[in-house]
């Protein structure tokens, strides 16, 4: 990479010319945040720059800090470095960060997926010299089915559960997957309960103008009687907890790309799994990387060695970028 433009420090990825960090894991004075997941967005930075739709999420999750937000493709200049955000398609508000200085362009993908989920915006390839890409599912065994097929499978499962008198619990990340799953099941039910953490995100996004299905909050006041024929969307941490008891009888499913492999799905204590991911699959990663025309690719987060080795073999210079977390 243009070592001068972005370097990896103990605080995280740093742009010396612009004096800012991208998704740093320690407190810094200025942070650009790709998206509001907790491994990318930490509390306690002096100032934040993010997308308009990430800002309300950071407020919910991190509390009050000095947030500044911009629209996609609206460059700002930080100490002479041109910075712009571009849709990453991962979750609502998620963005790639394009950094340009002295004619040198680097792009940090954050997490991304290349298919349009109808909520997060369509991934936009950014031409650059250096592309820092995630590689969560960088193995060719990860090839996702089309979203409509995935959603139909979830719907069929819920309808079958209903027919047998069971509620359906979908385990999903509160940010991103929960909104997608609510959208996925909305065509067949208006009885969607969200766990508190997901509901907070849901409401914040609705307030910010995002069109999402109406949901019910699964608070303590819910009476047992009204909990029939419901779909419950909750983080996996609620699995087997007292909180879920009021929804009995129910069946459970984990919604995650890791469910693609039988062994991993079996390991999961949930009744079933749906391989629905907010990350690009193998073909998505390759297509995205090629579309950047980058001279150098740095792979982070995931199957970094597989991806970089493969890229080198097909003539794209690549390296692993080791995060020292």
């Amino acid at each position: 990479m243009s070592q001068e433009l972005l370097t990896l420090t103990t605080n995280g990825l740093y742009c010396a010319a612009g004096d800012f960090y991208i998704d740093p894991w320690r407190s810094v004075h200025k942070a650009i945040i790709t998206h509001a997941h907790s491994d990318h967005a930490k509390a306690g930075h002096g100032a934040y720059l993010c997308h308009h739709l990430t800002k309300p999420l950071l407020k919910v999750r991190l509390g009050d800090f000095a947030y500044e937000s911009i629209e996609w493709n609206q460059p700002v200049t930080l100490n002479g470095v041109k910075v712009s955000l571009h849709p990453a398609g991962h979750v609502i508000g998620s963005s790639q960060v394009r950094v340009e200085y002295n004619g040198e362009i680097a792009c940090v993908s954050g997490d991304y997926k290349t298919t349009d989920d109808g909520l997060s915006g369509l991934f936009e390839p950014v031409s650059c010299h250096t592309f820092i890409t995630e590689s969560t599912f960088a193995l060719p065994v990860y090839q996702w089915e089309l979203q409509e097929i995935q959603y139909r499978k979830v719907q069929d499962w819920i309808l079958a559960n209903q027919a047998q008198g069971f509620n359906s619990v979908l385990f999903a990340y509160s940010l991103g997957k929960a909104q997608r799953m609510a959208t996925a099941v909305a065509p067949i039910t208006n009885n969607i309960f969200l766990h508190g953490s997901a509901a907070a995100i849901h409401e914040a996004l609705q307030k910010a103008g995002v069109s999402l299905p109406n949901i019910k909050k699964a608070g303590q006041q819910t009476e047992k009687g009204e909990l029939k024929n419901t779909v419950i969307i909750a983080p996996a941490s609620t699995m087997g907890t007292h909180w879920l008891k009021k929804f009995e009888p129910y069946r459970t499913a984990v919604c995650s790309g890791w469910m693609q492999v039988r062994g991993q799905a079996k390991r999961n204590p949930a009744d079933t799994g749906f391989a629905i991911s907010d990350h690009a699959d193998w073909n998505g990663l390759l297509a995205a990387i090629k579309a950047t025309n980058a001279q150098k690719v740095l792979a982070t987060h995931g199957f970094t060695s597989v991806l970089s080795r493969y890229l080198n073999e097909i003539g794209i210079e690549a390296e692993e970028l080791e995060y020292v977390n």
């Binding site: 193995l139 060719p140 065994v141 990860y142 090839q143 996702w144 089915e145 693609q260 492999v261 039988r262 062994g263 199957f303 597989v306 493969y310």
Partner: peptide
């Protein structure tokens, strides 16, 4: 890359099924 996939999936029959174009 086939072998990497196989080591991750842990089953030859499944590895092939997953590698074939969806």
């Amino acid at each position: 890359l086939f072998n990497e996939s196989y080591h991750t999936v842990g089953d030859l029959a499944e590895t092939i099924a997953l590698l074939l174009p969806a």
